[in-house]
Design a protein around this nucleic acid. Structure first.
Length: 112
DNA sequence: CCCTTGACTATCT
DNA sequence: GAGATAGCCAAGG
């Protein structure tokens, strides 16, 4: 039995496992890197089927919010695990340890 | 085979 | 920038 996701799943697991601590990736990014551009929704399924523990908490929505319902058990767990790695929270949005996509830091340098 | 469901996204208001 | 809308695609009923 080889369903479509046999390959997809293992790719996702590999990619997710490769996300460095303090860094986050969107579902769509993972899917795209895996070579399946429109499979963002499938990424969650793949992680749920992972045979061994994955840093699933490093995968967030494209808008940098968490995919779980705020207040839910998984949501709180994810928040804690992320904070534990130094990830900051700006309201519901997560700020990776090294947010290279913001020009502010490049222009103004690390203030803090 | 049609319809619904998701740990989603891009786009428009 | 938040909320609504329309795509998206495999799985399961």
């Amino acid at each position: 039995m080889s369903k479509f996701h046999d390959k997809f799943d293992s790719l996702v697991w590999e990619i997710v496992a490769g996300i460095p601590p303090g860094q986050v990736m969107a579902y769509g990014e993972v899917a795209r890197v895996a070579g399946f551009p429109r499979y963002s929704r499938m990424v969650s399924g793949a992680m749920g089927r992972a045979p061994e523990p994955l840093p699933w908490f490093r995968v967030v929505r494209s808008n940098r919010t968490l995919a779980f319902e705020p207040g839910s058990k998984s949501y709180r767990e994810q928040v804690q695990l992320l904070k534990q790695e130094g990830v900051r929270f700006e309201g519901p949005r997560v700020i990776a340890v090294n947010p290279t996509e913001t020009l502010d830091k490049m222009l103004w340098g690390p203030e803090v």
